[in-house]
Amino acid sequence: MNTPFPFSAIVGQEAMKQAMVLTAVDPGIGGVLVFGDRGTGKSTAVRALAALLPPIRAVESCPVNSAKSAECPAWAELGSKKLVSRPTPVIDLPLGATEDRVVGALDIERALTRGEKAFEPGLLARANRGYLYIDEVNLLEDHIVDLLLDVAQSGENVVEREGLSIRHAARFVLVGSGNPEEGELRPQLLDRFGLSVEVRSPNDVAERVEVIKRRDSFETDHAAFMAHYGAEDAKIRDTILKARKRLPKIATPEPILEDCAALCIALGSDGLRGELTLLRTARALAAYQGKRKLSRDHLRAVAPSALSHRLRRDPLDEAGSGTRVLRTVDEVLG
């Protein structure tokens, strides 16, 4: 049973679903971090996301999914240069993956058998123009985190090792999930995620029962279940595609920009990335909802996920910064 659980069949967890859909509308938002308890459907949602993403056009034999043959890296030995449509890559970065696996290394098979010095692309190459998913991101080894930060910052993977000198594009959306009780995330990495959401186990019994029922029919009555929710997923995918087209035309009134700035100043978030992400996310939401103009409601809806992880952290504040954001939003936006 390798088909992932359909996205539209996930019960509740609206904040998480919204955040994922919005990154699909505008990949420039820069990824989602999902933090929460075990068994709340974090991994399920991420794996389901792949089915929602519209396919991309890429050069068939290009290891980094380039959109044009001119963009293919020089080291890649291209077979067919035909443009094909392929699903948006969603690449799993397993914990404990070696540096070699992540950035790529000398292709040892070819070196040994044919005596050629060739580059074997790593996970970052495969994730280009797609998603990179890290489960238990807070347990990731520090040196891999350093590496990811560097690549995420520059959008380019540079390999200088074993006599190889290689570079290729590596623009991807980071999706991470984890359980906050097992450790915190470094602020630098936290900042790389555009949105962050906290998920909790549903407290409502009816909702819990519904989760179990759906999962159960997914397992036992697979075909019918997929037929129903597969269609739902397709609807979401269509809306995402429409939203992508609409996105550049969304008007942003001046007062909304001021609201953004006022909100970030009131919260004291570091840097300007907060404002930029807030704006982008709000626009993506407006596009997804089919609106033509950005309004305060959009800001209000996305502020917690766009800003809560960017606040100057009070390490002992246990209420979580989400509530702080909500309070400030109420104060600033009235």
């Binding site: 068994g39 459907g41 186990s201 819990r208 029962v209 179990i212 029922k213 999962r215």
Partner: peptide, 16 residues
């Protein structure tokens, strides 16, 4: 399914 879910909730088992 409902019986088992309710039971799990009664014992404070958060994970679904």
């Amino acid at each position: 399914a409902e019986t088992l879910t309710l039971l799990a909730a009664q014992f404070g088992i958060d994970s679904l």
